[in-house]
Write a protein that binds this DNA or RNA. Structure first.
Lengths: 216, 216
DNA sequence: ATGCTAAACAGACGTATGTTTTATTTCAGA
DNA sequence: TCTGAAATAAAACATACGTCTGTTTAGCAT
């Protein structure tokens, strides 16, 4: 186990093919990350060997190290792949511009519930393997997660001011909301009786009911 | 890694001190499990070595195997230690006998929230290391967790019949409730601003509000 | 004291792992 | 056709790990 966590940003491998075709390198890299993620999901990070990853990607073991700098690096890249979109999406899609807080919250929640559901395996993996991340990178991940909470806190606070939401503590409510997004990823084993849409509807209603008085 | 998961119940080690003092052996065993759990919490299961455990317990590496049958066994014992009480407690304490569903739910939730909070590190560890459990034992763990959900489902259903609770789907509500118990263990890094009691009050209120109409 | 036995111990064993290296092959472009 | 970067296969390397073995220690009944 490499204990000295590299300072460099993950993904900035030390020794990649000299220059070559940088975009081809990136493509290969994300191919590796995608396949490796499946293995991390299925067997766990520690139980997945570089030889497994080599076999799964069809890329020779030695050659792997031309595209990633370490096994740990692959995990960091996996976190980036599945964490970034969720956080970025809401801000792009103009959710911030919706005037009615109720509609705003509903829209944001609906979309992010769907996204969460679609990458549930990756989310479960992230919950499990967070400990392996180098501290430097862990901080970045937690920051992004915290940003998502802040995003919802703002929505909730605004709804409070407009008297359409009612919670005791917006920050707490936002934390609970974001946490609830992981219900399915973390508890799917006990929720198999619901179809995807049944679940999404139930979750949405339950979460909104906690914030919007006399909801539906 | 030992891939052939032993059939035997964990804890039933193959080769323990011949007869000796069986209660002294058990004491030593739980001492090992307790210390090892701290290490699993701090560094993760895979990153904790038997040598770490030896050092932490002060028990010689080879001697450890007189008290536990494998590293995996220690993890199973840790799950038992921290999982059993939570499930068993409610049934013993006469919560089932409380007539008023509202008071019943409130009492059960209050107590289990406290318990959860006190062993939050262990719960986080369990969420992370579930994958390592041998399938046989995993089934047992999930069964216990599922029993807890059923426990709350029953309470909720009874409250529904008495028209004092209102949820769309009692099973779903129970799942959500049990999941919400893990808010602090899984998200403590973002909830440090609350004191223990502040958090417990907020959590209790939020969870109850989702089930009891016009609560508080 | 003596002899017995469970417990403690140090060290070794075999394997698996992340990573690197080396020698060989492929193949697009000049 | 020649060249050189990229891919491959295989092996090597260093280390870390779980587990086991053979031996010593220490408490205790005789």
């Amino acid at each position: 186990m490499n204990d000295q966590h590299s300072i460099k940003a993950p993904g900035a491998a030390q020794t990649l093919p000299e220059t070559g075709n940088p975009e081809a390198v990136n493509k290969r890299q994300s191919q590796i990350v995608k396949k490796a993620s499946r293995l991390f999901i299925k067997k766990g990070y520690a139980q997945t060997t570089m030889r497994d990853i080599s076999k799964a990607t069809g890329i020779n073991l030695g050659n792997l190290y031309n595209y990633i700098s370490s096994k740990e690096d692959i995990l960091c890249l996996a976190f980036e792949t599945y964490h970034d979109p969720a956080v970025a999406w809401l801000e792009r899609k103009g959710v911030l511009d919706i005037e009615d807080p109720k509609e705003q919250l509903q829209t944001a929640l609906h979309q992010i519930l769907i996204m969460t559901h679609d990458v549930m395996n990756d989310i479960l993996m992230m919950y499990r393997e967070t400990r392996v991340l180098p501290p430097k990178f862990l901080k970045i991940v937690l920051k992004k997660e915290s940003d998502l909470v802040d995003f919802f806190e703002k929505i909730i606070t605004r709804g409070m001011e407009k008297k359409v939401f009612r919670v005791r503590d917006p920050f707490f409510a936002a934390n609970m909301l974001v946490f609830q997004l992981s219900l399915y990823p973390l508890r799917s084993w006990n929720l198999k009786r619901y179809t995807r849409d049944e679940f999404l509807a139930l979750a949405e209603e339950t979460i909104l009911k906690a914030i919007i008085p006399d909801y539906a």
